[in-house]
Design a protein around this nucleic acid. Sequence first.
DNA 1: CTGAAAATTATTCAAGCGTATAATAGCGGC
DNA 2: GCCGCTATTATACGCTTGAATAATTTTCAG
Lengths: 218, 218
Amino acid sequence: MSRRAFHRASEAERRQDLISATLDCITELGVQGATVRQIATRAGVTGGLIRHYFDGKDQMVQAAYRDTMMGMTRTAIEAAESLDADARTRLGRFIVANLTPPVTDPRTLSLWAGFIGHVRLDPTFGAIHRENYAVFREALERLVSDCLREAGRAPTAAECRAHSIAINGLIDGLWIEGSLAADMFDDRELAETALRAVEAMLGLPPGGLGATPTMQEG
Amino acid sequence: MSRRAFHRASEAERRQDLISATLDCITELGVQGATVRQIATRAGVTGGLIRHYFDGKDQMVQAAYRDTMMGMTRTAIEAAESLDADARTRLGRFIVANLTPPVTDPRTLSLWAGFIGHVRLDPTFGAIHRENYAVFREALERLVSDCLREAGRAPTAAECRAHSIAINGLIDGLWIEGSLAADMFDDRELAETALRAVEAMLGLPPGGLGATPTMQEG
DNA sequence: CTGAAAATTATTCAAGCGTATAATAGCGGC
DNA sequence: GCCGCTATTATACGCTTGAATAATTTTCAG
């Protein structure tokens, strides 16, 4: 019986493979199912290699968490980065990006939930969460501020903060429900609901943030 | 060396003790830390007893999950059950109850997150979540409907559904952020933010849902 | 072409897991 | 006050886990 043939990969490549395998395992088998052996099998390597690239399993899982959160936040922020569009369109796109796939997705939620359980226990997880939340809300607060100014208002910092906290909460909550029980809602129902709610919260005219498919615009 | 002395408890009492111990373990040690032995130690019994009251560890954890979710929902619904108060006051109390302790609390969140990771994997968890969500949103939809009618409006069923979905999302999201990073927000900031946001969403006058401590009422 | 350094595998280890089983202790009926 | 029932304990079992170590293969410099 001969030894298993193996491929020698670059460090960056291998680390990414291991992280991806970790995410796959957590998504499909839950945090409990993401064992060193499962992850290694999925990455097409043997268990020992994990310790060669990470200090241990925990550290690899942390890397996977950071990866996931950053990815979600970046997806949403990039959706709002069109330079040609006005602020209210960008805010609308930001909201929709968060409430449609791939961000709103049962697999992503499982992943996120698995991590959140660690936030209170492991300070590293807490730090990662805070960092990401800060980035997310800063982007959102900027969008809100631009949006209100564009509408001829002069919002105070406190107003912008309150609005961005509320909108962030709304997005988070709808994201969860949409991911947990996608079949309870129509395709774009959650995104539409969020857009109308945010318009009301900011005092913008209905439809101002994006298309309202059920009624003719203009 | 003699055998350990023990107390013979009633079935209901013992089951509740075991469930409580399970919740404590998940809260303090995470789902991974909630092992049969830890739970038994915390409940002051030996591991074997768990199998005497439940078919296995999984079933006990499910019971603990059901217990938690029902408890949270009941706390909020009871807060809104004053028969003498008008609908908008009751809706306000419902929202505040969800965004202040004991519902908004880091321990509760850890618990919830630990469970949510199982929803996609274990159909039993999925069923428990759906049942609870239905109860919660039914109560909320009723409050919204009453509230709008009280304000002289004639809301359609679709309007009430959309509003309750949005408000539910807002509550969920703020509940999470408040529990994850309580120190980032002032004491009643989240509840106040939610109240103002919901007023705007429903088109009610500012302050209509509850006190606004920062400005004089009336 | 050779040899050393690094990457990867294979194997082993101790600890902890959930579960099963047999012995025992408490309690209610008589 | 004893006896039978069963709640509870104690112990053991088989398996899985994360980690450690040794053996082997690849790569690359010279």
